[in-house]
Design a protein around this nucleic acid. Structure first.
Lengths: 137, 137
DNA sequence: CCATAAATTAATAACGATTATTATTTTTGA
DNA sequence: TCAAAAATAATAATCGTTATTAATTTATGG
């Protein structure tokens, strides 16, 4: 998954906390949200530290960053194979069970000449709450 | 594809030019690149105008914005169904013929309760050029 | 256990992409 | 042709993220 050889990081209280926060939510939080959560336990933590540690955790493969949409970065502590869906109205992101179909990387490799490492499948739609809200307008 | 009723836009030389530029390239350019191209024909055009018109064209469904990665916005004048692959080394984005498999929206709708409008499938890998460069290190 | 070197931190400045503002110009249609 | 509405260029402002730096924390080897 990583293209560069693994670096070894010195552990820190801050990084442990960030990982714990990410693992304890089913949501897909932004750096800002994680920062707010982290301050509750470590009031002196700074936002830059959150960003830096998220990048490190990602590099280690202990978390993932969503590739949904082009907006702000969202992170995911769940490493199990799954897809995502984003609500076009409120922006909420939720997990989708992985599609049953197998993606033929070799077929794509044949078509475009790239070596394929992974893929990302995302759905866009309207969540139940926003659907209801739209109906009651 | 759009959730709000269609707005009617007043036409403009600038918007026509931007659409023409997007349709005449197979690449997936950024607003900044389109801006540079546009100045060649309309030296007084401003970057804000490019951004605004890209948003309008997108709203009209005449262009698409890629959902690949979280970085800068990339646009696509090709409305035909296709997927994308991004090079993890150089960032280049290329078209991939659409996967043969049919995605079961109703299955996803059943699983998460959303109404699904569309999906996006992206591959990540290493392009031939970067693969060769890595081999010669 | 202590000393040293190296990595990490908090604070904050800087950055880059995008959006908002506003006075002026262009387009539309009666 | 004329007035109203929308689009433009120029530029300021915003926002998410990254870079800088002096101080602190962590790893380790004696």
């Amino acid at each position: 998954m990583s293209l560069t050889p693994a670096r070894k990081f010195k552990s820190s209280r801050q990084r442990d906390l960030i990982l714990q926060i990410l693992r304890s939510t089913k949501s897909h939080p932004s750096a800002a949200w994680i920062f707010e959560e982290a301050r509750k336990h470590l009031p002196s933590i700074s936002l830059g530290t959150v960003y830096r540690n998220l990048a490190m955790l990602k590099e280690e493969g202990r978390i993932r960053e969503l590739s949904v949409g082009k907006g702000i970065g969202l992170f995911d502590g769940d490493l199990r194979n799954h897809d995502h869906i984003r609500c076009l109205v409120c922006g909420r992101v939720e997990d989708v069970p992985p599609s049953a179909q197998s993606f033929s990387y070799s077929q794509v490799e044949g078509a475009v000449g790239y070596r394929v490492h992974w893929h990302s499948l995302e759905y866009f739609g309207v969540c139940p709450g926003c659907e209801t809200a739209a109906a009651n307008e």
